[in-house]
């Protein structure tokens, strides 16, 4: 099987306090450690496990981003992906979800595939729309929130996470699966993998390579506009009541003040 995994480079969600440029409404990337999106790592892990069980599959990672997004691809290659593709073009900056999906779909169409893995959503943008759009543009089914899967005789059987539990679904290839976050424990690259990744091939694609117009993607093509960015309201500190015999009465008073009682 030819397995494709869409990945993304994001500011390290475990360390970064997000800063947003109020003018462009984009993330400030200066001085920020960029990493392979942990969500994408989980999707890649699911893909690698499928490829390992199958033994004859190749895993290609596809990313769109600035030149240095190649670091994220290298990390994916170190984890075990066979090769990579980076869509990078100055004209792509400022793409909205649809623009991103168009570029990914175009590159994926050129590379060829049997199955595409995506994260359910990226850890920075969180639109969650790109997997569905890519599937639509390629004209293939999209299975969302997949937590486990198996492919036999060209048919995928998988479990979807739903509110009540899990739903077992089936679909013939080709198709796109969006992997539920937390469903797989992403591996840490082995040193051999890190060394091998330096020699693996990463193909670069520009807008021209993909036969896309600047109107299709990037700032120019973006129809979706971010109007305003607001910080999350900080959680209020709680009140600790120490019981000196009158604890219950004081708690009742506090509740009364807040109109609960």
């Amino acid at each position: 099987m030819r397995i494709l995994v869409c990945v993304k480079q994001v500011p390290d969600p475990n360390t970064v306090v997000y800063q947003i440029d109020p003018g462009t409404k984009r993330l400030v990337r200066d001085g920020v450690t960029n990493v392979l999106d942990p969500g994408a790592e989980v999707a890649l892990e699911a893909a690698l496990q499928l490829a390992e069980r199958d033994g004859e599959s190749t895993v290609t990672v596809v990313a769109m981003g600035p030149e240095d997004a190649e670091d994220a691809i290298r990390r994916a290659l170190a984890m075990g992906a066979h090769d990579g593709a980076l869509i990078t073009d100055d004209a792509l900056a400022g793409s909205d979800a649809l623009g991103t999906a168009k570029a990914l779909a175009a590159a994926i169409g050129q590379i060829g595939f049997d199955i595409i893995f995506c994260a359910t959503e990226s850890t920075d943008g969180y639109s969650g729309m790109v997997p569905g759009m890519v599937a639509e543009l390629l004209g293939i089914p999209h299975l969302s929130f997949i937590r486990s899967l198996e492919v036999r005789d060209g048919v995928l059987t998988g479990q979807r996470v739903i509110a009540l539990g899990y739903q077992t679904v089936q679909c013939p290839l080709p198709l796109l699966v969006a992997i539920a976050s937390g469903s797989h424990e992403a591996r840490y690259p082995a040193l051999k993998g890190i060394m091998a990744a330096k020699r693996k091939k990463v193909e670069e694609y520009t807008l021209a390579d993909l036969d896309l117009d600047p109107d299709d993607a990037g700032e120019a093509g973006a129809r979706e506009r971010v109007l305003e960015l607001l910080p999350v309201e900080e959680r209020q500190a709680g009140v600790i009541v120490e019981d000196n015999g009158d604890g219950a009465a004081r708690i009742a008073e506090l509740l009364r003040q807040r109109g609960v009682l």
Binding site: N14, E185, A186, Y188, A190, L191
Partner: peptide, 15 residues
């Protein structure tokens, strides 16, 4: 370095 088999907490530590 070879087997990548270690307690899961260490992944975060290494990263």
């Amino acid at each position: 370095l070879e087997e990548t088999r270690f307690p899961p907490e260490l992944t975060k530590v290494f990263n």
